[in-house]
Design a protein around this nucleic acid. Sequence first.
DNA 1: GAGGTGTTGTGAAACGTTACAAATCACTTC
DNA 2: GAAGTGATTTGTAACGTTTCACAACACCTC
Lengths: 331, 331
Amino acid sequence: MRDVADRAQVSITTVSNVVRGWPYIAAETRSRVEDAIEALGYSPHSIAQGLRTGRTQVIGLVVPDLASQYFAVMVETVETVAQQRGYNVFVVNSRNSPELEIQAVEQVTSRWVDGLLIVQSTRSANTSKHLSRMQIPVVAMERVPQDYQGASCMIDNQAIVRLAVGHLRDLGHRAIAMLVAPRDITVVEARVQAFLSLTQGHGTLIPTADDFGLHGGYTAAKRLLDSGGALPTGIFASNDLMALGAIRAFSEHGIHVPRDVSIVGVDDIPSCAYLTPALTTVRQPLELLASAGITMLLSLIDEKPPGAQQIVLLPELIVRESTGAPRKSKR
Amino acid sequence: MRDVADRAQVSITTVSNVVRGWPYIAAETRSRVEDAIEALGYSPHSIAQGLRTGRTQVIGLVVPDLASQYFAVMVETVETVAQQRGYNVFVVNSRNSPELEIQAVEQVTSRWVDGLLIVQSTRSANTSKHLSRMQIPVVAMERVPQDYQGASCMIDNQAIVRLAVGHLRDLGHRAIAMLVAPRDITVVEARVQAFLSLTQGHGTLIPTADDFGLHGGYTAAKRLLDSGGALPTGIFASNDLMALGAIRAFSEHGIHVPRDVSIVGVDDIPSCAYLTPALTTVRQPLELLASAGITMLLSLIDEKPPGAQQIVLLPELIVRESTGAPRKSKR
DNA sequence: GAGGTGTTGTGAAACGTTACAAATCACTTC
DNA sequence: GAAGTGATTTGTAACGTTTCACAACACCTC
């Protein structure tokens, strides 16, 4: 910057002014400075800018699992919106570990970022404490800690269960089970509660091991089959991946979906529509959620009133091929 | 920091020394400083540190598509390794757009990061130019630009094709086609060349639209079916997603995989094993690739000799259910 | 007691920017 | 012609660290 100033015969301040588009600059001066910048290949040093202004133009995004398509879509949406508003996104993966999560939050606290968007890993993580004494704006998304007071953005979990279970009921299913992901995740617990109250004790729960992806769904279904008990005719899976895992397990046992058992998932990950059978699922308005979250955060950063402090979005049922009426003859 | 110094009755320098673990500090002084830090809740301001030291302890990672499981796994691996070595990872998504990619690279150049790991979006992007005049170490991964000279890390594309086509041949397939993703991606072009030379003109190419995911595979297969020509009995898809899309299209037309047509993909994304039919695929050693890349980069950053400048890894064939012997009777 | 040697602590100068107040100059306006 | 107005430019002091050279002291050795 000093070099640019020397070459253009102006002060450093003037260069700074040109770069930042300050209006009161003579056209002649401006072009001289611009030429010098071009000639010297100068580009501003964002670290120094950050130090001086206290703004980094970066927001942090902490997610529990990058490899899941679900969060990947979220990251992408956040990134797109942020980029449009001149911000970069610093993604940190907490890999479902409370320790890593706290570590991530602390990294981020040490003034790297202007704001934080976080999807908590588990309920048990007492990240909330850390969040509350944070100096920067924070918006919690999707898995909102129960004791968290600040801005948040989530999806109506009860509605999800209502749609899924309602759909199975409408088809005629009575023996309905829920494929449960680990309950220390806030949303899972909320959905289990909704499921139990909705089925009024007639629903059964199929627990899984720690894994809440394909493998978890697969092994849970496997265990159910091996147990030899009566199969439910309708299954509500905690998410699409688990649903897929379960379908695979069934198909290995010669049980056909949806003829013998109907399955509905949650999320609507991209591959759902292209599988056979294509998966019936409750679509979470993920892009909406993400863009609402980032928009909210940016408002908070700009100290504008954020509109709402808490946003709750509604899910949507997408019927495909994995659900159908139950067979009359009990197997 | 000044506050801490005041409270502990020492100089700012001493506080800095304590924080950074400088050895020559009297035990008594050290504990006084530590108490003060604790009491005041001081944490170092990484931006200022970065400005002073010229090191941010952050490395940049530019990928063409975050939403694909393929790159997500890569990001996760890089992140894990980097974290172990005390680095954070700044992920930027170029969304397969050369413009965004250059923009990303420039963001990163303005001294945000200590090193850059990049997976180029398309061949056409002249990012190489930008890369070569970069002030920081760069390692190119997977899609290595043809005119790029620096450090790189990739997978043997010829071997991939050899494994896939060889497998189909061994099963008895003669009419083999390749489902081609857009050829402006370096690896795709390399594979097409390998495919053509390996089949010596007997292989056919099935082009797709821009999309190289589920949708691309689906529509390409659809078009093939609608064209009414003779179907190949063996298909080599550019990646797993396209393979899945194609399988869906076939199944909608009552064509069964692998009975009527065999399909082999590339990548081995997590869901492959849990679908019906489970996908036969050529596994890319993604974790190995990613960790080799980041390790290489970190060596370069530390100015240690990086061992090798170019690393080429070998793929592995994983046979599942989507391939089998062709039916004797021509349809 | 002069000259090492090693341990602790410090003050001042950066790193590359931006904010602020002030300076300069050319016009109007009364 | 004095004073006000607005456009344009500039010098200086931060922002929170780390680096470096040196100061202060204690202890040992000849």
